[in-house]
């Protein structure tokens, strides 16, 4: 008589495939992606819509690489590595497409708080200004509809991460979706109703995955508005949430002995980077300004 064993105790050996990346053979675990291979090879790859805790949607196209034999470039984040693939990550075609993607984004989106993108834009020589001042921008009002977070869609690159986090990659609430089409596509509730009227449960998992600060905690927004957001002075301490017995790891971002933001590590087996409204926002009582102690 036997019960089912923990797979980790059975000792399954992990099979690998070998692919060539920039003329170096790289082993990737079976089921892994070309991006995993790039990481293993120590090649830094720009990504925008990719996150280790979300299913790759490969929409931003900034991680494209050249696969020999393929008519078009392929997204490294989602393409499974296959034995014998020959990949180039720094060919002229790759550099050109990455540059153009960054340039396209820069020409229509406010990337002022997307530090990563800006350094990649510099790296690839993207010049968003060559589309001229008349180039159409997103042009949306900042949505401030509650005390927990804001939505500044001028900064939105439509990476779908928030939609995924709200949907079946984590939260399964589906309060937001992509609406409309083409350049007019927006992240939106139904009929763009205010967030508090929507199904939103304010877990903030959308904010946590936003790569450009289009979604921002209200605390951060307020401090930035007051020119008092100082990331270089902030400490980040990992602890455990007190609101139930699940044991979610919290990263407390603290500035001047004041909590300014709460996140969770993507690689923790309990949360995978996700939290609920209490863990994400329920720390106000800790603040020295309002404690009874």
């Amino acid at each position: 008589m036997t019960g089912t064993m923990n797979p980790s105790e059975v000792g399954v050996s992990i099979r690998t495939v070998t692919i060539s990346i920039d003329d170096v053979d790289v082993k990737v675990p079976e089921g892994g992606t070309v991006l995993d291979g790039c990481k293993a090879a120590g090649i830094d790859t720009p990504t925008l819509c990719y996150s280790e805790n979300l299913t790759p949607v490969n929409v931003c196209r900034v991680c494209v690489v050249e696969l020999e034999g393929s008519r078009t470039l392929i997204p490294s984040c989602s393409r499974p590595a296959e034995e014998g693939m020959v990949i180039h990550t720094d060919s002229g075609r790759v550099r050109h497409s990455r540059k153009m993607v960054l340039e396209f984004l820069g020409s229509g989106v406010d990337l002022s708080q997307a530090d990563d993108m800006n350094s990649w834009s510099e790296h690839y020589g993207a010049d968003p200004d060559r589309y001229g001042p008349a180039a159409e921008k997103i042009n949306e009002e900042v949505k401030i509809q509650d005390d927990l977070y804001i939505r500044d869609y001028d900064k939105c690159v439509l990476c779908y991460k928030c939609v995924e986090a709200c949907g079946d990659d984590a939260q399964h609430t589906f309060a937001i979706s992509v609406s409309g089409r083409g350049f007019a596509a927006r992240i939106s509730t139904e009929f763009d109703i205010a967030l508090p009227d929507s199904a939103c449960v304010y877990c903030g998992n959308c904010v946590a995955v936003c790569p450009t600060n289009a979604l921002q905690f209200k605390t951060e927004w307020d401090l930035r508005e007051a020119a008092n957001w100082k990331p270089e002075e902030q400490t980040v301490t990992t602890t455990v949430c007190s609101y139930c017995g699940v044991g979610c790891n919290l990263e407390m971002h603290v500035q001047d002995n004041t909590i300014v933001k709460v996140t969770s590590p993507n690689d923790h087996s309990v949360t995978n980077g996700n939290l609920c409204i209490k863990g994400r926002f329920g720390w106000q009582y800790v603040q020295p300004t309002i404690t009874t102690r």
Binding site: Q145, D146, D147, L148, L195, P196, C200, V201, Y202, S242, Y243, I277, K278, F281, G282, W283, Q284, Y285, V286, Q287, I290
Partner: peptide, 11 residues
């Protein structure tokens, strides 16, 4: 509610 009362939940 002594802890959770500390923040303004929209829901």
């Amino acid at each position: 509610g002594v802890q959770s009362g500390g923040y303004n939940s929209p829901i």
